[in-house]
Simulated scan of single mutants.
Amino acid sequence: MASWDDVRRIALGLPETSERPSYDGVAAWRVKDKPFVWERPLRGKELHELGPAAPDGPILGVRVADLGVKEALLADDPGLFFTTPHFDGYPSVLVRLDRIGVTELTELIVEAWYARAPRRLAAAHQAQTAPPEAGR
Results as ranks from 00 to 15, higher is better:
1 M>I: 04
2 A>T: 07
2 A>D: 07
3 S>V: 04
5 D>W: 10
5 D>I: 10
6 D>G: 01
7 V>N: 07
8 R>S: 09
8 R>E: 14
8 R>D: 15
11 A>S: 08
11 A>M: 09
14 L>P: 06
16 E>R: 13
16 E>C: 06
18 S>Y: 02
18 S>H: 07
19 E>A: 09
20 R>D: 09
22 S>T: 01
22 S>L: 07
24 D>Y: 04
24 D>C: 00
25 G>W: 12
28 A>H: 07
29 W>Q: 01
29 W>R: 00
29 W>C: 00
30 R>Y: 11
30 R>S: 10
31 V>C: 11
32 K>H: 13
33 D>G: 03
35 P>T: 03
36 F>R: 01
39 E>F: 11
40 R>C: 15
40 R>F: 13
41 P>S: 06
42 L>W: 15
43 R>I: 05
45 K>C: 07
48 H>L: 08
50 L>D: 12
50 L>G: 08
50 L>S: 06
51 G>M: 04
54 A>E: 12
55 P>S: 03
57 G>E: 08
57 G>H: 00
59 I>H: 05
59 I>F: 05
59 I>Y: 07
59 I>T: 02
60 L>C: 02
60 L>R: 00
60 L>S: 02
62 V>H: 02
62 V>C: 10
64 V>W: 13
65 A>D: 14
65 A>I: 03
66 D>M: 03
66 D>W: 02
74 L>Y: 10
74 L>V: 04
75 A>F: 04
75 A>C: 01
75 A>V: 03
79 G>A: 10
80 L>Q: 06
80 L>C: 09
82 F>S: 03
84 T>N: 07
84 T>P: 02
85 P>S: 00
87 F>P: 00
90 Y>R: 07
91 P>R: 04
92 S>F: 12
93 V>I: 04
93 V>T: 08
94 L>V: 01
95 V>S: 05
95 V>L: 14
95 V>M: 06
95 V>I: 08
96 R>M: 08
96 R>Q: 11
97 L>S: 13
99 R>S: 06
99 R>F: 11
99 R>L: 13
99 R>H: 14
100 I>G: 08
101 G>Q: 09
101 G>A: 06
102 V>S: 09
102 V>G: 04
104 E>C: 04
106 T>F: 08
107 E>L: 06
108 L>P: 10
110 V>N: 05
110 V>I: 14
110 V>D: 12
111 E>P: 04
114 Y>M: 09
116 R>C: 15
120 R>V: 15
121 L>A: 13
125 H>P: 11
125 H>G: 10
125 H>K: 00
126 Q>E: 15
126 Q>H: 09
127 A>K: 14
132 P>T: 01
133 E>L: 05
133 E>M: 00
136 R>N: 04
136 R>Q: 02
